[in-house]
Design a protein around this nucleic acid. Sequence first.
DNA 1: CGCGAGCTTGATGCCGATCAATGCATGTGG
DNA 2: CCACATGCATTGATCGGCATCAAGCTCGCG
Lengths: 258, 258
Amino acid sequence: MTMPALREVPSTLKVSAIPLVKIESLKVACSSCNLRELCLPVGLSVSDLEQLDKLVGTRRQVLRGNALFRSGDSFHALYAVRTGFFKTRVSSEDGRDQVTGFQMAGELLGLDGISTDRHSCDAVALEDSQVCVIPYEQLESLTREFSELQRQFHKIMSREIVRDHGVMLLLGSMRAEERLAAFLLNLTQRLQARGFSAAALVLRMTREEIGSYLGLKLETVSRTFSKFQDDGILEVKQRHLRILDLPSLQRLVNNSNC
Amino acid sequence: MTMPALREVPSTLKVSAIPLVKIESLKVACSSCNLRELCLPVGLSVSDLEQLDKLVGTRRQVLRGNALFRSGDSFHALYAVRTGFFKTRVSSEDGRDQVTGFQMAGELLGLDGISTDRHSCDAVALEDSQVCVIPYEQLESLTREFSELQRQFHKIMSREIVRDHGVMLLLGSMRAEERLAAFLLNLTQRLQARGFSAAALVLRMTREEIGSYLGLKLETVSRTFSKFQDDGILEVKQRHLRILDLPSLQRLVNNSNC
DNA sequence: CGCGAGCTTGATGCCGATCAATGCATGTGG
DNA sequence: CCACATGCATTGATCGGCATCAAGCTCGCG
C-alpha cells in the first residue's frame, strides 16, 4: 500500500526531525495509545488489545487541506484519528456539498466505504493530522476471532447511525439558533471527554463548513454567533470561543420556542 | 422472549384462519424466502443460508399503527421486514419528532439498538406487517463463523450510514421540490427492485410523515404535489401517484437551479 | 349518513438566503 | 518593514421560500 501523504510532509513541520522514511515503519501500539479509552479498543481485554496491535500497522500523515480519501476511491482500510481534525463531506451531482461530520482524536473514518468497496464521501484534514491505518480485511478476520472486538466494532457503526439520526432531527426540525447551540454543545462534550476545557475552545473549521454541516449559510452562522455574544452566552473572537452561559445554551436546544 | 404483538392480532385479520398460537411456531426459511435477493442473505452460499435459517426463528406480526419497538426499549434482535411498511422516527426532548426512514420488504430494522443495547428510535408499522426476528446474540456468533454473512451484515450497516448521509445532503441543501422529487425517485427505485411498476405507486404514509422525513410541513408537501401535477410530471389522487414525466423528475434532483 | 382524519388551497408573515460592503488576520514579495 | 493580496468573518439591506393560520374538501368507516 502506498502512502502518498508522506511525500507531502514539509520540512517546516515539527515532527520533521524524524526522517520521513521512518514514519512509515513507525509502529503504533493500541495497548499504549493514550486514546485507547475512546477509540476502537474500548473495553477490550489485554490479550485482545495485543491482537489489535498487530492489526494497526502504520500511521499516515495528512496535512491541512488534504484528503485522507475521496469519494470514489477504492476502500481497503478504516482510519482512527490519532491527532488533528477532519471533516467528511458528500457531494451531489450538481456540485453542492454537505459536511456530514467532524472527526477528532479517537474517532473512526471510512465506514462509508464498506458498503460498496468504494468511499462515498471525502475526508479532509482541517489541520495537520495523523491517523492509524486499520486494514479492513484484517479487521474483519480479527473480529471473527475476538468477540469483544466484534462487539465494539458493531457498536461504533451503530453509534454512527444513531448520530446521523440526530443530525437529521437537527436539520429537519430545528431553527438556526438551536442548530448552532446543539453543535456547540456536542463539540464541547467531545472535547471535554478528551480532557479539554469545556468552556474555551478553538474552532478548527470555517463558518462556511459549520454552515454546511448545519444546513445554514455562513452569514447566518456568523450572525447567530454574534447574537449569542450579544446575549452574553458566548464570547466570540474569530475562531476562539468561550462559553459564558452554558445553561442558556442547553435551554436553546431543549426548548422549542425561545 | 415474549411476543406482545401476537396478542394484538384481531379476529378480523385475514390470516386469522391460522390459530394465533401457531404463528409463533411458524418457521421462516431464508433459503426459500422470496426476499432473499434483497435481505440479509444476499450473496450467501447454500450452506451459509442453511445456517441462517436456524438463526431466524420466528416471525412477528405488527398491526398498522403499532410499534415494533420504541426508543428506550432494550435491544436484543434485528428485524427484517417480510411484508408491510414501516417508518422509523426519533424524538427530541421537547416532543418534536423526525421521521428518519421508511422501510419496506427485505429491509432491516433495529440497527440503532446495537450502540447502547437500547433502541434510540421508534419503528411503527404503516400497514399491517410481518417481520422476521433475528436474535442479535445469535447473529453475532454466526457472523464469526461465516465470513460471507459477516461481510453482508457489515455492508448493510455501512449502506445505512451512506443512506443517512444522502438524507443529510437533502435536508441541508435542497429545496422543497428537489426534496420531494428525490424522495419519489428513491421510493420508485426500491419498489421497482421488488417487482412493482415504476410508474404507479400508492403511498403508505401521510403528507405529514413525508414532510417530517423531508424537513417540510405537510402543506408544503401537498402544494408541491399539486405543482408537480400542474406541471404534468405527476398524477396525484390522494395517496395514488402516477409518474407521467420521469425525466423531469430526475432533472429536478440533479439540476440545482430550475 | 355523518363524523373525522387526512388532504388541498388561500392569505399572510417570518426566518434565513442573498447580495453587497467592510473589517480583520495572516502571509508574501518588493 | 511596509504594501498589497488573500481568505475568512462581520454586518447591513433586501428578498423569497416555506411556515403558519385558516377555510373548505374528500373519502373511508362506524
